[in-house]
């Protein structure tokens, strides 16, 4: 039961993009086509789940054990960069079709602050191992949902008559603001 709560909270109620402003660069950058958004979302979800699975043992069994928690940031970012590299190599070998679809997005995930944010929140909230993995997966699903919704809206926006100075990023931000308002409605789900 608790795991379901963690999952729903991470994916919808406390959506990383719309409540913590994490992962905004890809949110703005690749949300112009639904297909790209879906691919990016899937790749990020995958890396996020792996990140949660890999950083938890490192933090609890290495950093805490040897009393060096100040190395937290350096070690987390190295783990994430290494994971992204590994995933890229694996996907390139095993499935060239998928690699072509994800290709350019994979390296971008390293600098996606949502991935590092996920690892930091996981430590701050003191989750257990299973919970951390569910949290990572839920965060990725939430990121994908936000990205997909935004890309759908932006495809429609291309045909809308927008004031000149609001075109492009400005209108995207305002639409995101409205989505954030709408997502606040989910806040009552958990109490």
């Amino acid at each position: 039961m608790e795991l379901i709560v963690v999952f729903i909270s991470a994916s919808i109620i406390h959506n990383f993009v719309l409540t913590y402003f994490l992962g905004l660069c890809p949110f703005v950058g690749v949300s112009n086509k639904t297909e790209n958004a879906l691919n990016m979302g899937m790749a990020t979800t995958f890396v996020m789940t792996l990140t949660a699975a890999a950083t938890w043992p490192v933090y609890h069994y290495i950093l805490l054990r040897f009393n060096i928690p100040f190395l937290e940031y350096v070690s987390f970012i190295i783990i994430i960069a290494a994971l992204v590299q590994l995933v890229e190599m694996y996907v390139r070998k095993s499935s060239p079709t998928l690699y072509r679809a994800l290709g350019i997005y994979l390296p971008l995930i390293t600098t996606n602050c949502a991935v590092l944010g996920l690892a930091l929140f996981m430590v701050l909230r003191d989750y257990t191992y299973i919970k951390s993995i569910i949290f990572g997966f839920g965060t990725g699903v939430g990121f994908t949902i936000a990205l997909l919704m935004m890309s759908g809206i932006r495809e429609e926006l291309e045909f809308a008559d927008i004031p000149k100075h609001f075109q492009g990023i400005a209108i995207t931000m305002i639409v995101a603001g409205m989505m954030a308002l709408a997502f606040m409605g989910f806040a009552g789900l958990l109490h």
């Binding site: 004031p163 100075h165 400005a170 931000m173 995101a176 603001g177 606040m184």
Partner: peptide, 13 residues
């Protein structure tokens, strides 16, 4: 959060 997005959009414009 919503206000931050709205203001950012306004400032970019």
């Amino acid at each position: 959060p919503a206000g931050a997005f709205l203001l950012m959009g306004g400032l970019i414009a």
